[in-house]
Design a protein around this nucleic acid. Sequence first.
DNA 1: ATTAGCACTCCTCTTAGTTGAGTGCTAACA
DNA 2: TGTTAGCACTCAACTAAGAGGAGTGCTAAT
Lengths: 340, 340
Amino acid sequence: MLTNRQVQIFQVIVDDFITFAQPVGSRQISKKQEITFSPATIRNEMADLEELGFLEKTHTSSGRVPSEKGYRYYVDHLLKPQKITTDDIFQIQSVFKDRMVEMEQVIRKSANILSELTSYTSILLGPDVQRHRVKRFSIVPLSSDTAVAIIVTSNGHVENRMFSLPQGFTASDIEKMVNILNERLVGIPLEKLHLKLEVEVLSILQEHIGSGDDIIQSLVKATMPNTESKIFYGGKTNMFNQPEFHDLNKVRMLMDLMETTSQVQSLFHPNEAGIHIRIGSENQLLEIENCSVITTTYSIDEEQQGAIAIIGPTRMDYRRVVALLDVMRSDLSQAFTKKN
Amino acid sequence: MLTNRQVQIFQVIVDDFITFAQPVGSRQISKKQEITFSPATIRNEMADLEELGFLEKTHTSSGRVPSEKGYRYYVDHLLKPQKITTDDIFQIQSVFKDRMVEMEQVIRKSANILSELTSYTSILLGPDVQRHRVKRFSIVPLSSDTAVAIIVTSNGHVENRMFSLPQGFTASDIEKMVNILNERLVGIPLEKLHLKLEVEVLSILQEHIGSGDDIIQSLVKATMPNTESKIFYGGKTNMFNQPEFHDLNKVRMLMDLMETTSQVQSLFHPNEAGIHIRIGSENQLLEIENCSVITTTYSIDEEQQGAIAIIGPTRMDYRRVVALLDVMRSDLSQAFTKKN
DNA sequence: ATTAGCACTCCTCTTAGTTGAGTGCTAACA
DNA sequence: TGTTAGCACTCAACTAAGAGGAGTGCTAAT
């Protein structure tokens, strides 16, 4: 257990390091208003804190820097919710002022504002399209052997995929098929679509039209992939401003990471509510061993959800980011649910 | 006019510098097989070439480096088409082997392969959607006051936009409207759509349905924006490997550039056929003052076109890039036109 | 016209020395 | 006994000086 004084010193160190990105020395600490004891005392306490694993030195005679364990402690026990300024709130809400109808625009703009307000990089995941429910199914033939299948979901999302028509498939065949599909598929979430198609609809189609087999195969193929929810970034290059990223290799790794959809998606915890903080190596990814990732989810129509992540150096301003994320989360949720 | 020998020396310098990214000295040149004269002679020639503006020195006693004017001369007069290896061709054609139906996938993969083969960054512009022609127009109501407008083009591209319905707009109103729209708008290119809507269709709608006005406004708004053709990148971080980009600031500028759609689009010359090379400051953009951009276009169904750009350091391997781009251009054009 | 020779330039790398911020330890102090 | 002043020590960061080397331009000989 830490003594009060240790906590106090530790807090000063973390706050100072978050602000200035420089190892914090005893003299510097002693100058703070709230600190009433001498550098020597502080040095003793720091030695103890280091022994306990909360602090580190960059070299034998340097000031102290919080360790990962230190940040973890800070985040778990010392992080008091910050009141963010009305100015920030105003900015966030500007996203929703315009009454934009398109969800995509709203999310894109949110990503930008978050990155501006934090000066870190923001990643927003759109809602999980797979959970949208089919509202209307239609097929538009383009030529004798290709057509576009269009699925509109109840949220107004439109999925479309080209597929090839079997030889001799007529316009009336298509009409019949569309009718059957609409009868059977409306209300089904996209993720269950290919299953439903294969198991249930296939036989019905074969009954009413001749060769339903290969066209269903085409359709199944068309509805299967594209699982990924869309990813939006804000401030991709903000990391260049962080002193810990004045290093080509690190920047590069980060940029590469952001180009790799699967890795980006692994940053999120899909099903846990609330705000989550992963510090440094807790992220499992070597590429961001000195980054922290703060994530949360926002909800759309209760059922579905999107996700937000802020990625910054471990020395990130957790207080502020958590507060901002909280506001953004609830505002997004509200904006996307009240509309229907 | 340059003498034969000057041209020969110049060519060696450019080739050498392209390969090793180091200023080229007279001794080094004299060692080449094809060079039969002494370093001193070469020095004299180099001094002349420098005076003519084709070469530069990085400092008084350094080797020579091609100037922008030098590259321009090299590109205009010395660039003999390179035969690319069957291996490369094989790689490029692998894109088309899979018989992917979706244009987007093909383009995305092309971007990646181009960046891999060149080790520079590739930018591909999808076809100019604005020139697609309407094939089918449909409207799917989502709730009492919102609906999705869906436009399928003859190439199978699907545009969709949400818009709000006026109070008391019924299902049969929508049906009527869709019919009118399809009657009037099929075959119209997207770029002319909002014009056509405002000028011609508005009055007809008002005649048949009551308050056509505000819904047309909604539709016009919905069809107007989104002008940008989609942009696909390959090898965004490849520049990190180029020695001239071992500099955070330059990398940053480049990355920022690539996030700015308008700037990226300014790299292309929309309407000129063939392969274009812009060297350094010829690009007008400060951000890439030591980059060259090689662009070309590929065609889709004769009418429309997409564009390809490779962006690399001015010291880029023009021979190879031009050759690769040429293959890619014709392969893409072929793939996208034969399909119908 | 070409080239060998030479003085000169200037980048790059290494080494050594200085400075200063910071520590840990010891001993004095309240 | 907890706190603090004092001091020796460490080490990164900076500066200065010097050596090495690749390259040039010029001159004179071939």
